[in-house]
Structures are given as structure tokens and as C-alpha cells.
């Protein structure tokens, strides 16, 4: 029993161990890595992935998946960018309008996914794979693959902060806090966990399963848009590859954070840990000077590790469930 306890402890806290190991490794390789500036930078970079990973957590909790977040980021940033091309809107109000336009785009994008999944009943990975490709197609067709420049007021928004905390981190904190409250303190949130565990039982228990499934994809779409419009405010120029492949980072972050691909388990906090880890590895590889061709392979290996751990954890839980005998 103690051995299996230990194994479970390891599985449960694997991310923390990996986190420490990776941190120490890069630190030893490049001592500058331990610097306050470097760490602050990692947290800032992690916040974009993290915000979207929070949205992904909602989807994963229902045992779904959203592969289209990268294209969603692109389209949302593009919508904000087009609004800001209007000279009359190149001011504070314009920034607000642009943000609203970007976020609405993300919500619509998420709603399209949700519609195909909930109403047409098509498998989530296929729907979002199709919208991943089609979404970027729509975007590049509209921009004709030209870049979009963002005016100074928007860049100022990107560089702003609250009490000295950079804007992206503030946004991330707000999103995580809101998600945490929704997931743990509202009926809607608790019902998401129920749906992910057993959708059929949820339906019979009187939970509006379709409505909940629909909502999580919209929430994920919104989070992708938040990530898109904030990240682009830092970069200042939208090019064709903005957001490409981000679905990998986001899913990795969520799963490393303890959210299961099999549904019903996960927290908003997990996204913080997971995204920091992903970003730390990415920044660390640049710090240490890993061959750029090798970097995606390292990331792939980390995703692999994440899903492997998740699967082992899930299989273990299932076994425990099956073994439960009638207690005295």
C-alpha cells in the first residue's frame, strides 16, 4: 500500500517536481536565469498562454478539446487591428472599441465551434481541427497575408500596468481568479465537473448538458481572444503566423497543470503552474542556446510527458475505482 501511495503522490505532484528540476537545470546552465528580470519576464510571457490555458481547462473539464485557439487569437487580434486602422479611433476610446471587437470575435469563433459540437454533434477535435485551418484561412484571406500595424495608443495599453504590475500579468490574474470562482463557487462550475465525469448521468440528473458544453467552448473562445488582443498589444504588429501552433503550448500548460484530458478533473490554478512551466522551458532553451530546430522537439517531448502522466493518473484512478469493495 505504501508503494502505491508513493506512486500516487509522485503522479499527483509530478508537475511540481518537473518544475523544480527544469528551473534548477536552466539556472545551473545559465545563472542569469535566476535573475528577477528574467523571472518576471517568464511570468509575463507565460500569462498569454496561461489565460488561454484557463479557457482550455473549461473545455478539458468536459472531456472536450479546442485545437483552434491559435487561429482564434489571430482572428481576434486582426479584428482589433482593423478597428484601429480608423484614424478617428486611434485614441483611448478606440482601444476600448478594438478590445471589444477582438473579444466579440473570439466569442463568435467559440460559438461556431460550440454550434458544430453541441447542435451538429460532431467530435470536438475534428470540429476544432477544421476551424483551426479554416479560421486561419479566413484571416489570411481577409488580410491578404499583409501585416497589420497597431497605433501608439494600443501599444501604450500593452505597456501599461497596475501598481507597477505589467498589464498582461494583471489580466492573467483577473482571468484566473474569475475562473477559479466560477469553477469552484458557482452551480454552473460544479455542473461542468459533473458533465465531464458522466454526461449521460448529468442529463438524467437534470443538468442542461448541452448548454454547459456550449458555454465552455464560448468561454475558451473568449479566453483565446483575451490572449490574442493582449499579446498583440505587446508585439505591435500582426503577421500571418501570429498564434500558429499555440494550441500545443496551451494544451500542454493545462494538462501539466493537472487538468485531465479525460474530463472531470482540473483547476484554474493549474493553468498558472502549467503555463509558467511551459514558458520557463521555452525561455530557458533560448537562454541556454538550444538549437532552434530542436526547440519544438523538446516541447513535443514535454507535451508527451504531460499526457502520459495524465493517462497514467487516469488509469490508476480507474483501477482504484474498480477495486473498491463494499466497506464494512
Amino acid at each position: 500500500m505504501t508503494r502505491s501511495r508513493l506512486a500516487e503522490l509522485l503522479l499527483r505532484n509530478m508537475t511540481v517536481f518537473i518544475f523544480l528540476a527544469v528551473f534548477l537545470y536552466f539556472g545551473v546552465q545559465a545563472p542569469r536565469f535566476f535573475g528577477v528580470e528574467s523571472i518576471a519576464n517568464i511570468v509575463k510571457q507565460a500569462s498569454f498562454i496561461g489565460v488561454i490555458a484557463v479557457g482550455m481547462t473549461f473545455v478539458l473539464l468536459t472531456a472536450g478539446i479546442d485545437l483552434s485557439v491559435g487561429s482564434n487569437m489571430y482572428l481576434s487580434a486582426m479584428a482589433a487591428g482593423y478597428v484601429l486602422q480608423n484614424p478617428a479611433l486611434q485614441n483611448g476610446w478606440g482601444v476600448l472599441v478594438a478590445l471589444l471587437a477582438g473579444l466579440s470575435t473570439g466569442i463568435v469563433f467559440g460559438a461556431i465551434n460550440a454550434f458544430c459540437i453541441v447542435v451538429l454533434r460532431i467530435t470536438p477535435f475534428l470540429v476544432t481541427l477544421a476551424t483551426l485551418v479554416a479560421g486561419r484561412g479566413v484571416g489570411t484571406a481577409i488580410t491578404e497575408s499583409f501585416g497589420i500595424e497597431y497605433p501608439p495608443p494600443y501599444l501604450a495599453f500593452g505597456a501599461s500596468g497596475l501598481f507597477g504590475i505589467p498589464m498582461p500579468i494583471v489580466v492573467f490574474a483577473v482571468v484566473v481568479l474569475a475562473a477559479h470562482i466560477v469553477l469552484s463557487r458557482t452551480q454552473f462550475g460544479r455542473q461542468i465537473y459533473a458533465v465531464g465525469r458522466d454526461p449521460e448521468a448529468a442529463r438524467k440528473a437534470g443538468i442542461a448538458v448541452d448548454r454547459i458544453t456550449f458555454s465552455v467552448y464560448v468561454i475558451c473562445g473568449l479566453c483565446a481572444a483575451i490572449g490574442g488582443v493582449t499579446l498583440i498589444a505587446l508585439i505591435g504588429r500582426l503577421n500571418q503566423t501570429f498564434g500558429v501552433g499555440k494550441e500545443f503550448d496551451v494544451i500542454t500548460a493545462a494538462v501539466l497543470g493537472g487538468t485531465s484530458l479525460f474530463g472531470g478533473a482540473g483547476t484554474a490554478w493549474g493553468a498558472v503552474v502549467g503555463s509558467s512551466l511551459v514558458q520557463m522551458v521555452q525561455s530557458g532553451m533560448i537562454f541556454v542556446g538550444v538549437n532552434i530546430y530542436l526547440q519544438p522537439m523538446v516541447l513535443a517531448a514535454i507535451i508527451f510527458l504531460a499526457i502520459l502522466i495524465d493517462s497514467l493518473r487516469n488509469g490508476r484512478l480507474e483501477k482504484l475505482r474498480r477495486r473498491r469493495l463494499r466497506p464494512d
Partner: peptide
């Protein structure tokens, strides 16, 4: 009350009982 139970093992007893009727406080929170 179905023969095969509609309970969610990942939630608490209280949450299961009130899964569609959670008592809410002022801000709409449980």
C-alpha cells in the same frame, strides 16, 4: 431515482444532492 445511479464521484455528497439547486448567496455564488 434511477436504477443506475446518477451521481458524480468527483463531487461531494452535498454538491451531488444540490447539483441543480445549489443555495446561492448575494453574489450568485454558492
Amino acid at each position: 431515482i434511477h436504477q443506475e445511479l446518477n451521481l458524480f464521484a468527483n463531487l461531494s455528497i452535498a454538491e451531488n444532492i444540490f447539483i441543480t439547486a445549489m443555495p446561492r448567496g448575494p453574489a450568485g455564488l454558492i
